[in-house]
């Protein structure tokens, strides 16, 4: 019952999502961000904000992407909460271009 960060965030980590999230749901590691599903209020604000379309409603995920639901939960639980945006990872723009975005 939440929004989920998926593949496209890996090695991008643009973090515009963090700025729009009203409840500070995002947690980060060295490669990407994750949503804490217990705090997410399903407002969808981050979906529009993400420049690489990495975030979606968990109900919309195709079967081969559903593992992200658990992964977001697990990683968010142990990683520090982001309180503000960060610089994108080096190579984020290149990755975005590679994604055709």
């Amino acid at each position: 019952m939440a929004y989920v960060v998926t593949d496209n965030c890996v090695d991008c980590r643009f973090t515009q999502c963090v700025a729009v999230c009203p409840v500070q749901c995002f947690h980060a590691d060295e490669t990407m961000v994750y949503i804490d599903p217990d705090n997410c209020i399903d407002c969808a604000g981050c979906v529009e904000a993400c420049p690489v379309g990495a975030i979606d409603d968990e109900f919309n995920l195709p079967d081969d992407q559903r593992y992200w639901i658990e992964k977001n939960r697990e990683r968010a639980a142990i990683l520090p909460r982001l309180t503000g945006t960060m610089d994108p990872l080096p190579g984020a723009e290149a990755r975005k271009a590679a994604l055709g975005l």
């Binding site: 729009v20 009203p22 209020i41 399903d42 407002c43 969808a44 604000g45």
Partner: peptide
């Protein structure tokens, strides 16, 4: 609302 809706009307 700053561009956000909610789970009811998304």
């Amino acid at each position: 609302t700053k561009g956000r809706l909610c789970v009811k009307v998304n």
